[in-house]
Design a protein around this nucleic acid. Sequence first.
DNA 1: TGTATTTTATGACTGAAATCATAAAACAAT
DNA 2: ATTGTTTTATGATTTCAGTCATAAAATACA
Lengths: 198, 198
Amino acid sequence: MIPEEVLKKYDASKIHLEKKEVLFNVDTQARYYYQVNSGKIKMNNFNEDGKEFIQGLFSSGSSFGEPPLFAELKYPAQAEAVEDSSVWRLEKENFFKLLRENPEIHLELTKILAGRLHYKATMVAEISTESPEHRLLKLIDYFKTHIHNIPKEEQYLVELSRQQMADLTGLRVETVIRAIKSLEKKKMVQLQSHKILR
Amino acid sequence: MIPEEVLKKYDASKIHLEKKEVLFNVDTQARYYYQVNSGKIKMNNFNEDGKEFIQGLFSSGSSFGEPPLFAELKYPAQAEAVEDSSVWRLEKENFFKLLRENPEIHLELTKILAGRLHYKATMVAEISTESPEHRLLKLIDYFKTHIHNIPKEEQYLVELSRQQMADLTGLRVETVIRAIKSLEKKKMVQLQSHKILR
DNA sequence: TGTATTTTATGACTGAAATCATAAAACAAT
DNA sequence: ATTGTTTTATGATTTCAGTCATAAAATACA
């Protein structure tokens, strides 16, 4: 997360996105550094027959879509506003200037990329070898401990919809619904009027 | 890839691993930066009933297992020698000193992490939404273009075994064997005495 | 406050990849 | 050459999540 003053200093601008608006498309060239100012952005893919996969959800303060700026690569997914949002946008050249002149921010960003790699390594192993219930628990625990920093003993109210959980784990809504039910029976999660607690 | 002279300057040491020897375990603390000197290392996971998932394969010049050094995280997978190997090992503190004093190397490393994130984003979308044949083609093409930098028009001889391809895509050997056969029928790959060409 | 939309829920059925069993081919080592 | 080991191959069968259809709850919103 780069402070607003710094972004301004390097000539970043704020752009607005309406819910469902697409910021950039898959397989296109990366030209900007983006950071969420308000709202929520998701990066996602669709396969031939429309099945979605959510690579990540980004809210206020989070940057996203940086990797293709570094490696000369195309975006592996599109970016889309989950709700009305505003986003800081910084030209690639200015972004690199910023990193050169602010090594502590560069290191900060490296940490963020490292964290994201950790998340992906965790989820891809889950998705390719584990059962629906196992995947969902891992996802929920990841959000609880790594994204919201909630201590183990405290309760976490899952903010994700069944559909979003499905799209984050490669499952289908119906499967998520059934797996969550089953996890409740096994006392692995609690349900309070359809809200999931863990 | 950090040059040998630089590694030596920051007091790195070379350690030897026999085939199948494990360098670090999943869920343990990261203390060193590692870079392959010779041989081949894989990072992998196993689920409860022994099914393997290969996170990455690293050969001469490649570093691996850096993310947990940056973010204060445990290793999401283990590291194991695929063949007899030697590996540069550099203490975490010295590694950060090296990065601070060599910003161009830091940037280089950021690029590598970015590339790895790109690979994971690509594969996790494949694994969660695509068919076996599609996944395998993506994997093969990724190795061809991004790892070996072979131009589209040139032929690439896949160096991976069916089992490795299975473990990289979350499939089973039998499924890989059948899918490759089917891809050959469709002229998407060639087979020359069991070797795969693309 | 009523209506539309989205999210959650459930049952019946299907299908694609996993599993299991077994063997042939390739390769490595002596 | 001989033997042992690993990799590739193939058929039969099973299973678990996906698919399809339909509805109830919850929520948004006019």
